[in-house]
């Protein structure tokens, strides 16, 4: 009897149970199947793939030398328009997104149907891409920066509202309990509790979204909604690759500068 006990006593340990191993294998298999399937669906044409380096070299030669003279007076005004569109869109997005974010947060708004409604609005605005919003607003207000700003603002609402509501839901319960105990109304709890506690999230979301919106507004010109994208679009249409190169370089510089700026501000504020 004691002999049996010793053999059993040498316990074996493996990382996964057989069921877990099977499950992991199934996940790998599904991954490989997905790659094969999608490669077939997008119909990669080998000739085009082999041709690609040549095409890139050709485009590169057309882009060089960069047409610097085009910068003034064509590119500069469009360039200035871009961060302005972004700033306007971010402010509008915050004005709409923060109240909806409070409504979506289950602790600040303990009313389930309001949470669901707010979440629906957030998902809906976010799931429509900026370009689609832009087409919509260009049709409504005509081409120009206003349509661009509105498009980015409406697409931003979902992002801002969702991130902010998560910040609000992370607020400590204790201080809110203390405010409840003083007889505070739900609105007062937001004013004196949730809002100050979610303020770091607010700044972080606002800066991050401004950063994203600068990049978004660079693209919007493709549908005529103002900004540097308009210049880019017309240069491509006119096959002026030396000007395209200039505009791409400008966009790159602007994005890097804005990102640097945002990082600096974020360090200061948070």
């Amino acid at each position: 009897m004691s002999l049996v006990a010793t053999t059993e006593g040498a316990r074996r340990w493996v990382r996964f149970t057989p069921a877990e191993r099977m499950a992991r294998f199934a996940v790998y298999l599904a991954g490989v199947a997905a790659i094969v399937w999608s490669a077939r669906t997008i119909e990669i044409i080998p000739e085009f793939l082999l041709d690609a380096p040549e095409q890139v070299a050709d485009m590169g030669s057309r882009m060089w030398p960069i047409d610097w003279r085009h910068f003034w007076p064509e590119v500069w005004p469009a360039l200035i328009e871009t961060p302005h569109i972004a700033a306007m869109a971010t402010l509008l997005g915050l004005a709409m997104g923060i109240p909806i974010g409070f409504l979506a947060a289950r602790n600040a708004t303990p009313v389930p149907w309001l949470n669901h409604l707010a979440r629906f609005i957030l998902v809906a605005t976010r799931s429509i891409p900026t370009l689609i919003w832009a087409l919509f607003f260009v049709a409504m207000f005509g081409p120009g920066p206003l349509a661009g700003a509105l498009a980015i603002a409406f697409h931003s609402v979902g992002f801002i509202g969702k991130m902010f509501s998560e910040g609000v839901e992370e607020a400590a319960r204790g201080p809110i309990e203390a405010l409840t105990a003083t007889g505070a109304t739900p609105m007062q709890k937001i004013v004196m509790g949730y809002w100050p506690m979610a303020l770091p999230t607010f700044w972080s979301v606002a800066l991050f979204r401004w950063d994203i919106n600068v990049r978004e507004s660079a693209v919007l010109g493709l549908v005529g909604a103002g900004g540097i994208g308009v210049a880019l679009n017309s240069a491509i249409d006119l096959i002026q690759w030396d000007r395209v190169a200039l505009i791409l370089l400008t966009i790159f510089v602007v994005v890097v500068v804005i990102e640097w700026l945002v990082t600096r501000i974020r360090e200061r504020v948070i």
Binding site: A178, A181, T182, A184
Partner: peptide, 19 residues
């Protein structure tokens, strides 16, 4: 809420709004 105004409360973790 009106009744709660008449009852003060002190907590173990102080529960101040720290910011």
């Amino acid at each position: 809420r009106l009744a709660r105004r008449r009852i003060g409360m002190v907590f173990q973790e102080y529960n101040l709004v720290e910011r």
